[in-house]
Design a protein around this nucleic acid. Structure first.
Lengths: 148, 148
DNA sequence: TAATTTATGTTGTTAGTAACAACTATAATA
DNA sequence: TATTATAGTTGTTACTAACAACATAAATTA
């Protein structure tokens, strides 16, 4: 079915373009707030998934524990994250956000959402909702393949 | 209008997730083909925008010329790209693809599109087309902000 | 024409992204 | 008790990417 293939190509190109502009915008914005993109992603994950061990945080972020360890380390130096020792397991640490870390994430998040809102302000709610559904389906399908 | 803000938030989250899974998938696939993501992007740009000077390639990729210079350098060492001197301007170089570079890009591109096709095979053409339109509008709007 | 300015690419430096392997220390299992 | 597995850190390597400084060549101006 050639029509499907053409749609696939068009969608692939479109998503690629979207990824690029989104990334540029987000990187510039995030980096103007004392944290890098990866650091901000770690803050986000801790906001959403609560206190986590390092390995669990790495799993959520699809990153190696060594990479995650260093990202966390820089957040620690900036005092956006706390390391609490687990009394039940001397090896483990519980990572949680400081109030400053939580506040910083919310500031960045809010502003990025305002940006997004101004981007879609002229689009019809129906189209937006349809797109939302498809993007979620695409993501789900793509994620299913990540494991295999 | 709170409804719009909620939509913006949902869309922002969805796009973020999409970006992450797309990136993982693409990176794994591209890196199994002897080139890095940035190198592949340079190949793509040269395929689509034809022979370019280094500064022009950098502009197309929204990268600094120094970054681009090094990306091109690695493609040169792998013989996927040619540097031709411009007789009219001794400073300038014209970058073009070797047949191997062009072939490599098409191989990667084709396979990534097949992936995308299998992701959307169960979705209705109407929804896909609607999404395509919105993603393109989003991209256009976001790109317009990049300059300012 | 000579001097200054601008444009093209490269190289030095720095910081962030990210994986794999090796390592220490602790916990769990045999 | 000895072995194996788990949690996190550190060493190493490669990629991504910007800014500054530089050499060279072209264009402009005086």
């Amino acid at each position: 079915m050639p029509a499907n293939l053409e749609r696939a190509e068009a969608l692939y190109e479109a998503v690629n373009q979207l990824i690029r502009v989104h990334q540029f915008r987000d990187r510039d914005y995030i980096c103007s707030h004392d944290v890098s993109v990866a650091q901000c992603y770690a803050l986000e994950t801790l906001v959403k998934r609560g206190p986590l061990r390092l390995q669990a945080l790495a799993d959520e972020m699809y990153l190696d524990k060594s990479t995650t360890s260093r990202v966390v380390d820089s957040l620690l130096r900036k005092e956006y994250v706390l390391k609490l020792l687990d009394p039940a397991d001397q090896r483990a640490i519980q990572l949680s956000l400081t109030p400053a870390g939580e506040a910083l994430y919310h500031t960045i998040h809010q502003d990025l959402i305002m940006e997004e809102a101004s981007l879609i302000k002229d689009l019809s709610p129906e189209v937006i909702d349809g797109t939302l559904t498809l993007i979620q389906q695409l993501t789900k399908a793509a994620r299913a393949r990540l494991g295999s």
